[in-house]
Design a protein around this nucleic acid. Structure first.
Lengths: 148, 148
DNA sequence: ATCCTACATTAGACAGAGTCCAAGTCAAGA
DNA sequence: TCTTGACTTGGACTCTGTCTAATGTAGGAT
């Protein structure tokens, strides 16, 4: 199961369609996000990108991630106050389950409609555009006694 | 409506009961959190605390906020990847509605049970301890045309 | 009331995450 | 192939937050 709803490789096409230059750097960042379906931090993306393209710079990784987020191709997730993580699974609605101990993240699909759970009287005149849930818990690995 | 479920002034008593020294600095931080029911960042708390007690240091504000969080008297909220905010309303369950433009936060109470919305098949062996919702939208002030 | 001392506070150095900028590079249309 | 504007680079910079060694002080002991 390597390709989620849309392959990242399609992403490269879509980017070009939107007038983006296809550079080696952007290709590598997209490949890293595609390679595992994992929520990397920018620095983790940089490390993996560097392995494929040693000259790539930190600024470019941040720029590219920012562009992908702006295009709606990738989701930015900040579950703790620390580094943001990038979620390549932007094309199917989901929420996140994060391990309070190690910080790992799983995509989950809760039942019900979050938006309709917020009554009009609780909206305070806001024009509401969306909602995110973060479930917190301990992952099986961290729960295992003999491990840290 | 100055005092929510429990007044911060009670907090000082509770702190002393738990063996905390009552210092001018801690008192001032608690007062700032109590004064408006607003979700300040640490730096905003520092600024307001400095107005009352000019010698107070950044480290102390961070320390005190950390202690209040550890005691469960204050909630730490990080809605964007930027500065954490501190929510003095820790004694009644609620969620947050944040303005995508200016970052301001309101407490809201959605209906329904978040935890039960996540079926067993979507828990991946995690021992789940809680869930938070962040509703996003544009606040009335930011939606107003003539304002920025 | 004063003394003691363990706990608090302070200033400033440090660290991690992210942004910005001027200079150099290169994708892709002409 | 040439040209040019968009892209990339490295390094400086900002913002949050943490740590530390030196100094101060709350509050129990005397």
């Amino acid at each position: 199961m390597r390709c989620y709803p849309e392959c990242m490789s399609d992403l490269l096409e879509r980017l070009r369609g939107r007038g983006f230059r296809l550079t080696a750097q952007r290709r590598v960042v997209a490949e890293v996000l595609d390679s595992d379906h994992v929520h990397y931090t920018a620095d983790e993306v940089l490390a993996r990108a560097t392995a494929r393209l040693p000259e790539i710079s930190r600024a470019t990784v941040y720029n590219t991630l920012g562009e992908l987020v702006a295009l709606g191709e990738v989701l930015e997730v900040s579950t703790d106050g620390r580094a943001k993580r990038y979620d390549p699974n932007a094309h199917s609605a989901h929420q996140h389950l994060v391990c309070s101990r190690c910080g790992s993240i799983r995509d989950v699909r809760p039942e019900g409609d979050l938006l309709s759970a917020l009554p009009e009287s609780e909206r305070f005149g806001f024009r509401i555009s969306g909602a995110e849930v973060t479930y917190r818990g301990i992952c099986p690995d961290c729960a295992q006694p003999g491990r840290n």
